[in-house]
Simulated assay, not measured.
Amino acid sequence: MADMSTLASRVRSIGRGLAVTTAVGAAAGAAATGYGLWEKNQFVLREESLAILPPGYGPLRVLHLSDIHFIPGQRKKADWLASLAELEPDLVVNTGDNVSHVKAIGPVLDALRPLLRFPGVFVPGSNDYYAPRFKNPASYFTGPSSTPKTPVALDWPRLRTGFGMSGWVDLTNRCQSLVVDGLRLDFSGVDDPHLRLEKYAGWPRGTRGQDTKPHLRIAVAHAPYQRVLDHFTEDAADLILAGHTHGGQICLPGYGALVANCDLPTWRAKGLHDWESNGRTTPVNVSGGIGTSRFAPVRIACKPEAVLLTLTAKA
């Protein structure tokens, strides 16, 4: 009987330990979720400088926006986006995933209205074409996300028209030149590589001898897959701009991103880095993004960001 009593006591002790562990785990999870819900609205501006312009030109201020994932009613995000117009950028580059809801097209255009008065270019991401669907949050850590088998289409033509009617240039598998502050900028953009829709249009072709005149080649894509970075680097881009990764969205302090949602190394999931391919090197800016999927509305150790790149002349 003594042995049975001792065994029962041990079982009760183990049970209490498990209960405490479960309670602690639940409390920690709730705290992390609460923090993540708070951080998703702690918008920041990351500033970078690059000396890549031809001698005698610049500075040129480029505002890079990506992964807004707008949802109707996001007043804080809308106000912050509108406030970015106070930066008076020379150029706005939007690398896609603007919405995360079927009713978000009008609201995101309204939020971006103050920025639409500046010269701009854009490409789409998968969440400009299709609305997100709920899925197991654990799948976020298993590899790049996939498109639902029965996707809900978003009104991408309306969004594209809204940008285009305001003067922003659509670079979806297209190339085009713009003159900004007296310098010719040659752009080449692709449709979303995450959906494998990219087709390379090369660089703008103009009058004979124009390549001998000062210019800058800027490549634009939503998702920074290695094959895309390789192509643009080998095709002599001076700068590549992309988004998609959300900077990892859920990061470990002191370590960084756990995933990049593409084949990019996780340490490159956000920031300005040099990409090397076949003997060439091109700076790549990967935006950590401004929003989240509406089904995973948290950020941890990865504040939402816009990026202001100040381009200056080469030494």
Rank of each mutant, 00 (worst) to 15 (best):
Q74S: 08
L116V: 03
I52S: 07
F70L: 07
G58S: 12
G25C: 15
T22E: 12
G120T: 02
K77E: 03
H64F: 08
T95H: 06
P72T: 11
I105F: 04
I105E: 02
L60K: 06
I105C: 01
E88Y: 12
V20K: 08
L91P: 10
A32T: 11
R75I: 09
N98I: 05
L81P: 00
D110A: 15
N41I: 03
I68D: 02
A28F: 14
K40A: 15
A85P: 06
R113W: 03
R113D: 06
K77L: 08
E47N: 13
V93M: 05
G120V: 06
G58V: 04
E86K: 13
V24S: 09
Q42A: 15
W80E: 03
V44S: 14
N127V: 01
G17I: 05
A51F: 13
D67Q: 06
A82N: 00
V121E: 08
L65Y: 02
I52D: 11
D90R: 03
G34L: 12
F43R: 09
D128E: 09
A26C: 12
W38K: 15
Q42H: 15
T33V: 13
A27R: 05
H101C: 05
K77R: 09
L81R: 03
F134W: 13
A30L: 13
L91E: 07
A27E: 01
G106T: 10
A27M: 10
P55Y: 09
N127F: 05
